[in-house]
Design a protein around this nucleic acid. Structure first.
Lengths: 237, 237
DNA sequence: CAGTGGTCTAGACCACAGC
DNA sequence: CTGTGGTCTAGACCACTGG
């Protein structure tokens, strides 16, 4: 074996996981304290703390002062997936990325959009529509609303070359948001842009992005039929 | 203000995030070393390390020995969502949960299933089909394949009362897996069970679960039309 | 080789929650 | 009050990697 040795706290975490998997420590039971486990494994308390904290962060253990550490009764498994640039998402499949700006306009935002972004009714926002393609075939339709006043530089951005998706990700380093996934029927205009039949089932993603507690942008991504979103489930990331 | 003080490493993380958001530290640039930052903030190196590691885990920073720490150029935002029991997922909407076992049989697994689980071609698995409902209306169709030999006790489990979903989650404490989301057209038999029209767009989730590197179960969940999957995007959780 | 982050230690004090 | 986990310190050594 030429495998390098994992750090101590990781080895300890694996051993603790094994005890849980093998039901030596059953869900709901209290396990020994940090000090006791540190002594058992012959490590400093900080090292044992690291292993236990990782498992607690993953939802496998629940820790409370005075009470101790218990194995979670009904662990909620976490699914995680990355949200790369659409360009990278496409290029990673080995295809050639293409991009076409359909329209850019300043309009009164629909109620649903202004509510999602937490801005006044009938606010004036920038709407951008574009199609991203893979090897020339339509991949996803991007329909975006941007609160341009809250995004310095956006008004001057040339979106015919760099997509709004890419520009925003590069210019808003840190943000939070919410994503909603639905299966919808392609409307006729969407079907035409995606080169599919009206009524085809299409994966639709709606993302709202916030920065410092205020809404910045909402985007609706309609993927061409057959698109799959893959995500890992697990304890480790 | 009666707000309790956050731990030091969290305050430091927020300040580092602020510098990134405000573009004092631009994407791609190298930031000061742990030792320098620890001195600047007047804390031990371990405390600064904790703050930096959290940001690196979130993908905001990239750290490499010798090279130092840089602000990630194109951060891949992470979306996370919990996978609760279907029963809890339904009850959290305020609806009354219902469950009906449709069939349970031992069969030769289709090729797609045995491949996904990494088991021999034409292996014998247990197939379970069930409908979960909310306030009496069909909510999701569960079509599951279980490698019963690898799940002690499953053969004796009574799935007419507790769903396979619930039984497995309670009896397999730790597992990993993969999830694939697609938008599909409801087949006629599915539409009948979900009380919708054939051809309706339905969110379809395929989950493969592994334990100790061997496949345990695959499930296909077909949600009734209109179902939305909501997920948080962010840097922290 | 040297400089950086990754890990570990031994010890300390604090925060919380049950008694 | 006591016992638990949460945080922090000062210091040490190791692992990786560019020069």
């Amino acid at each position: 074996m030429s495998r390098r040795e994992a750090p101590g706290w990781q080895q300890i975490r694996e051993e603790l996981l094994r005890r849980i998997r093998d039901r030596e420590w059953r869900p709901g039971t209290i396990i020994p304290t940090e000090v006791e486990l540190a002594k058992e494994f012959g490590v400093a308390r900080a090292t044992m703390h690291r292993a236990l904290r990782e498992l607690a962060d993953a939802g496998t253990l629940e820790r409370r002062r005075r009470l101790g550490t218990r194995v979670t009764m009904h662990p909620v498994r976490q699914a995680r997936f990355g949200i790369p640039l659409l360009r990278r998402e496409i290029e990673e499949t080995g295809a050639v990325y293409g991009y076409r700006l359909l329209s850019r306009a300043v309009k009164v935002a629909p109620t649903a959009v202004s509510e999602a972004l937490g801005i006044p009714y009938r606010a004036i926002l920038t709407q951008v529509r574009a199609v991203h393609s893979a090897d020339g075939r339509p991949y996803v339709l991007e329909e975006r609303w941007v609160h341009a006043r809250r995004v310095p530089g956006f008004a001057a951005a040339d979106l015919s070359v760099v997509s709004a998706n890419e520009w925003l990700l590069a210019n808003i380093p840190v943000s939070t948001g919410e994503m909603t996934l639905t299966a919808e029927r392609a409307r006729a205009d969407v079907a035409r842009l995606l080169d599919c039949q009206a009524g085809d089932p299409v994966m639709t993603v709606r993302r709202v992005t916030w920065r410092d507690g205020v809404g910045i942008t909402q985007v609706r991504l309609v993927y061409a039929p057959g698109h799959a979103i893959v995500s890992a489930i697990g304890v480790d990331p």
